[in-house]
């Protein structure tokens, strides 16, 4: 978790209302975890997770209102004294006046969400996880080919962007060209997107930078995509052996997720976009339970068996 996120970014992202503590909007969050300080409001501060954003729902508020004013003051004082990043109240909560006073005093934002507690937890956790997760970048193109998030890699000048252009023309979506930022949302779920400046742009040698949304419409672009397949383009090498049947699956590991990868040799006679498209379709078929190469291998075995029985009869 090397990334940092400020409260104001969260406010913008989650469309939160700032009720107090606006001077603390530049405070940083480092943990994607959230907590509800229910036990703390009841007086148990031994396990107070003060490095996390504190969420207060109607349950906590109702309990808080049953406390006597001097106990309320004491508990709120203790909650703020450890300086958590922010307090967020969910939809149907009337924010107690004490929180607003202390928010301004300690410069800790007190925020209000339009979500109810459960969905607030879910949404906020996803936002924090996405922004705080460790990121890595890969040089290549990320496309959504009929639902299969496909990375096309290969050395510079091999024609990755040209393949992307052709795939966009066939109705598939571009996610990122040239540089793909990748983070792991959870184990086995890798998400790729373009860096902010490069979003929606494609660089084609000889033409320059083109905005795919402007050229092809909104259906040609998508913001983020889960990564399922890596296709590595390389120049055909006569001395290299290529997988002829597709029975062995290769893997490439990013963070601790394995992604199916394949090496695709290209020549002038091979239409690269069609090959990448075929690779993505074959991957999808395998996900749906049909493996062409294994099916073929099975019928071959039956044929060999039949031939060997015929031989014995002779």
């Amino acid at each position: 978790m090397s990334q940092k996120l400020t409260i104001s970014q969260i406010v913008a992202n989650m469309k939160l209302e700032v009720l107090a503590g606006a001077l603390g909007l530049n405070r940083e969050v480092t943990s994607p975890n959230l907590t509800k300080p229910g036990l703390e409001l009841a007086g148990l501060f031994d396990y107070y997770e003060y490095n996390r954003i504190q969420i207060i729902g109607s349950k906590e508020e109702t309990f808080f209102n049953t406390l006597s004013p001097d106990i309320q003051l004491d508990r709120v004082q203790k909650l703020f004294a450890q300086e958590p990043p922010a307090f967020i109240f969910s939809k149907n909560v009337d924010v107690p006046e004490l929180f607003l006073q202390f928010g301004n005093k300690y410069k800790i934002p007190v925020l209000k969400s339009t979500y109810q507690t459960t969905s607030l937890f879910g949404e906020l956790f996803n936002v924090l996880q996405a922004k705080l997760a460790e990121r890595t970048t890969i040089h290549g193109v990320l496309m959504d080919i009929n639902g299969v998030g496909t990375i096309i890699t290969g050395s510079s000048g091999i024609g990755k962007s040209e393949v992307a252009l052709e795939l966009i023309r066939r109705g598939y979506m571009l996610v990122a060209d040239d540089t793909i930022e990748i983070y792991q949302r959870e184990k086995n779920v890798l998400i790729g997107e373009a860096p902010d400046v490069l979003k929606k742009y494609l660089e084609i040698r000889g033409i320059g930078i083109v905005n795919v949304v402007y050229m092809f419409g909104v259906s040609a672009y998508r913001e983020t995509k889960r990564i399922s397949l890596i296709v590595n383009l390389n120049v055909w090498d006569d001395n290299k052996q290529y997988d002829r049947l597709g029975l062995q699956a290769e893997k490439q590991t990013i963070f601790d997720t394995d992604v199916v990868s394949m090496s695709l040799p290209i020549t002038e006679a091979r239409n690269t976009a069609t090959l990448v498209e075929a690779a993505a379709f074959d991957f999808k078929a395998k996900q749906m339970g049909y493996h062409s190469a294994e099916d073929f291998s099975g019928s071959l075995k039956r044929k060999i068996k039949a031939n060997s029985e015929k031989k014995q009869v002779e």
């Binding site: 049947l245 029975l247 073929f296 291998s297 075995k301 060999i304 031939n307």
Partner: peptide, 19 residues
Amino acid sequence: PDGLNARPATMLVAVANSY
């Protein structure tokens, strides 16, 4: 024993292609 199935055939064809 399995005869000329996918794996041995791949080996054989690979050698043939280098001549």
